[in-house]
């Protein structure tokens, strides 16, 4: 068994309304100095050992993210 983390985040050039809403709210709450926020998705997968990196890439690219608007990072955190 391995633990795999996939983080999906909107591509830099893509508008991120979620992040924008948070960054605009922060000064109202008294937190200054935060220049930008981007909101993404965090997935934690428990996978069998025989699942190889290529398969994980496919899962991340074709399913967990939409490569048209999102980037993703796959990390094995424990094995």
């Amino acid at each position: 068994m391995a633990r795999v983390v996939v983080d999906v985040i909107p591509k830099p050039e893509i508008l991120d309304p979620q992040g924008q809403a948070i960054v605009k709210a922060l000064p109202r709450l008294g937190f200054t100095g935060v220049r930008d926020v981007r909101q993404g998705k965090h997935f934690e997968l428990e996978v069998d050992d025989e699942v190889d990196d290529a398969t994980l890439e496919k899962i991340a690219e074709g399913f967990l993210s939409n490569p048209v608007i999102e980037d993703y990072v796959v990390r094995r955190v424990e094995s």
Binding site: I14, L15, P17, I69
Partner: peptide, 12 residues
């Protein structure tokens, strides 16, 4: 490489 997709923000 840019996609020709726009992202909408209904709140705005």
């Amino acid at each position: 490489k840019l996609p020709s997709v726009q992202v909408g923000d209904p709140f705005t």
